[in-house]
Design a protein around this nucleic acid. Structure first.
Lengths: 195, 195
DNA sequence: TATCCAGGAGAACGTTCGTTCTCTAGAGTG
DNA sequence: CACTCTAGAGAACGAACGTTCTCCTGGATA
């Protein structure tokens, strides 16, 4: 089997299991069973479990932010062509997307927040993945906000709302926080216009 | 040694170690060393590690919310007696308190969010502690908001900002999110007045 | 003083788990 | 066909850890 497809299968299994059960609750044997790869192959591709966790978070980061960006860009087309205020709608679309994500049956919170809570104090590489992902997500939000002609401090606020919504959706097992955060964001955007 | 003081020592050690390093990174042997209690005594008081974790979260919940409430109530005295709008200041005081907490040298994020990320998928009792704590914290915020004559939906928003600030302060190792969340809360409060 | 027993120190047990090793089969190559 | 190399299956190893057990000390009691 090709090395790249083996890597993909390993990461598929890792993502499914790590995200669902947590990193420490999943053994390399579980990864082997779920991926269909031998332990030998797994350790060829990832010399230690920690590397596999890192790679899982890294690939998920790319995909997660890509899916979000794709959804947000759809707003430009689907949206309201008669109204030119779509730049603000792009910011709000982030919360729509979060709400859909929270409602997925296998939603289990934010992978990076969870991993950070589990291993951030122990593993610097994993803590780093969390920092990188959150920084990238925040940069993206700030970009959306600034493109709408709104002050970049609003980017900080929207980011905090999104993070709070993720954590709360996970702990309460509800998608409501996305709508609540969206409402708060709407108020903050409106306040910018009036301020 | 009295049983109640032994319990307290066990919980002191548990809180220090679990909060700092994470639950799974701390063994019962570490708790024994840090507490000075024998394993026999520890298992008399807490028949399993999970019970100790539960008790740690439970005691921390009481103390955490008590300290917050005490700080918030100080605002009434210290605050601005000439201005009757102190009810809103109580809401904002929450973020001052969070900022001080974030700046503590041993701050390591929210104990319940961390524990939930680590064990929420595995241990229902621990997931429950997270839900209970967050519900109590949110109820408290809603109470503050309503006592200020503000709409209870603002309580949801303030809660999400606080949660987002906690997570972000932990991952970025910075106290800034508290001030950012406070600013957002101020804007939201002002928007209520103007709306 | 003899007896009893709670409690301490820490060894021991059984399991889990990350990682490595062994053995074997099969595919490619002269 | 012989030879070699890769890779799979899974046993094995060593460490960590939750939990229990053993042994012993020291104080309380009759």
């Amino acid at each position: 089997m090709d090395s790249t497809v083996a890597t993909e299968r390993a990461l598929d299994a890792a993502e499914r299991l790590f995200y669902q059960r947590g990193v420490q609750a999943v053994g390399m044997d579980d990864i082997r069973t779920a991926s269909g790869l031998s332990l030998k192959r797994l350790y060829q591709l990832f010399p230690a479990k920690e590397r596999l966790v890192e790679a899982y978070l890294e690939r998920r980061d790319v995909r997660w932010r890509q899916r979000l960006a794709e959804y947000v860009e759809q707003v430009d087309q689907h949206g309201h062509p008669e109204r030119p205020a779509a730049a603000e709608d792009r910011v709000l679309a982030v919360f729509d997307w979060l709400g859909q994500w929270f409602a997925e049956p296998d939603f289990n919170g934010c992978a990076w927040i969870n991993s950070y809570g589990e291993l951030g104090a122990t593993s610097e590489p994993i803590a780093r993945q969390g920092r990188l992902h959150k920084a990238a997500f925040k940069d993206y939000l700030v970009e959306l906000v600034e493109r709408a002609g709104l002050p970049s401090s609003l980017g900080d606020h929207v980011f905090l709302l999104a993070e709070g919504a993720m954590v709360t959706a996970a702990i309460t097992r509800s998608a409501d926080p996305a709508a609540q955060a969206a409402q708060a964001a709407r108020l903050l955007i409106a306040a910018c216009g009036k301020g």
